[in-house]
């Protein structure tokens, strides 16, 4: 394997780095038969700094298809189908996102135990590997299905569509979708949820909203968990809220501790208010 470009073997060059030269040869072929009038070493892909860049191409018999299609449109379309399925069954769907270890699963365990007598709860669990979280949820009393994304870093609308059907979610229930612990990638993927809940814990920095703005901008509620640890850490709750509101003025906040139960009532009230 070429250590510089990562290509598999000498017959299969996939990366062309314009910044360095190889000291060995690869066999590869390109079948480009149009002419560029810009001067650089030709490469399979290239990046321009501005949309104003114009090509002069001799297209001959070729056809130019103007698309302007959002690349996430397929996911967004499926998310809309999910949203409709949830609404038709009057299922309250919530997408829980956070970094790993913020306490999403513990919050869910406590929530299930506290309110399952009043309302059915179903859970879709997303993790790269293992069935551990789904097992924890089922022990709490709610049916759960685990999606293992393998090397994937987020859930997408198609995965949720499949899981929703398999889980056979009952009408008028709550569906929690616990996303893969990751504050970056899940922000871009609409799952069809009614609302997005971002969880952070006081053992993380108060600057988290600034570091991961896409997630905080796209969420409706921010749960600040592990409030019982506040006396032992330097976490500034007000500062966190201020940073997050600067990105998303409509974001709601609940400070709680899933471990001690402090603040959990506010969370249950919030759930009760969602229609």
């Amino acid at each position: 394997m070429c250590e510089t470009c990562g290509c598999g073997d000498t017959n299969e060059l996939k990366i062309h780095d314009r910044q360095h030269s190889h000291d060995h040869e690869h066999d590869h072929e390109h079948s480009h038969d149009h002419n560029h009038d810009h001067n650089h070493d030709h490469s399979h892909t290239h990046t321009h700094d501005s949309v104003l860049f114009t090509h002069t191409h001799d297209h001959g018999a070729k056809k130019v298809i103007s698309l302007n299609v959002d690349i996430l449109s397929d996911n967004n379309r499926l998310a809309q189908i999910n949203r409709k399925s949830f609404e038709e069954r009057n299922v309250l769907s919530l997408n829980l996102v956070s970094s790993p270890g913020s306490g999403k699963t513990t919050i869910l365990e406590k929530t299930i135990k506290a309110i399952i007598a009043n309302r059915k709860i179903f859970v879709i669990e997303g993790d790269q590997q293992t069935l551990l979280d789904a097992d924890r949820i089922e022990k709490s009393g709610a049916p759960a299905i685990q999606i293992n994304t393998g090397s994937g870093c987020h859930l997408d609308a198609r995965m949720v569509e499949t899981a929703f059907k398999k889980l056979d979610v009952e009408p008028n229930s709550i569906l929690f979708i616990e996303n893969v612990g990751n504050l970056v990638c899940p922000a871009l993927f609409d799952l069809g949820e009614f609302k997005r809940v971002v969880v952070i814990s006081v053992t993380e920095g108060e600057d988290k909203p600034l570091k991961y703005p896409y997630m905080f901008k796209s969420s409706h509620l921010c749960i600040i968990n592990k409030s019982d640890l506040l006396p032992y850490v330097d976490f500034d709750v007000d500062k966190t809220m201020e940073y997050a509101r600067s990105l998303n003025p409509n974001l709601e906040f609940i400070l709680l501790s899933a471990r001690t139960g402090e603040g959990m009532e506010m969370w249950y009230e919030w759930l009760g208010k969602q229609k």
């Binding site: 996939k14 079948s31 892909t45």
Partner: peptide, 27 residues
């Protein structure tokens, strides 16, 4: 954009884009 470009370069093999010229325009 750079990670996306790298991913695309790796994944186009045996796809309809294998021999296509890929222009990535950054706005």
């Amino acid at each position: 954009a750079d990670a996306f470009e790298s991913a695309l370069e790796l994944l186009v093999k045996d796809s309809i884009l294998e021999n296509a010229d890929i222009n990535i325009v950054r706005t």
